[in-house]
Simulated scan of single mutants.
Amino acid sequence: MEGFYRGLAQRARDLAERADPFTRRRLLDLALRYDARSKPATAGARPLPPPRATPPAAIFSGLGKD
């Protein structure tokens, strides 16, 4: 997984070389975020929860309906 994010960071930097100044800054910021994700988590850091694929079940449970 680390190599995946490193590759995305490099791709964002490559695109930034040919972009206008506003887009370049955003792409370089994106590359920094990908670089951060490519590093293994430190012992004191709290891992992020996995993204939710479906809405919470309470939405479909019919709670609050008469």
Rank of each mutant, 00 (worst) to 15 (best):
T54Q: 12
R26C: 10
F60Q: 05
A57G: 01
A12I: 01
K39C: 02
A36P: 10
F4S: 04
A58R: 14
A43P: 10
A19L: 08
A45S: 15
Y34F: 11
A16L: 04
G7W: 05
L28E: 01
R52P: 02
Y5G: 00
Y34V: 01
R18L: 10
A9Q: 11
G3H: 12
T42W: 13
A12S: 14
A43D: 13
L27E: 03
A43H: 09
A9L: 11
A16D: 02
T42V: 11
E2A: 12
L48G: 07
A41H: 15
G7I: 07
G44P: 15
A16C: 03
A57S: 05
G64R: 01
P56N: 08
R26Q: 15
S61W: 08
G7C: 06
D29M: 04
D14T: 03
A43K: 14
F60S: 09
A36G: 15
A41Y: 13
R52D: 03
A53T: 02
P47S: 06
D20I: 13
P51A: 14
P47F: 02
R6L: 00
R11D: 08
S38M: 03
I59E: 07
E2N: 12
A45T: 02
K39R: 13
F22W: 04
P21A: 08
G3K: 09
R25K: 13
T42R: 12
G64T: 05
R11N: 15
A43I: 14
R24S: 07
R46G: 01
A9I: 15
P56W: 02
R25I: 04
E17I: 11
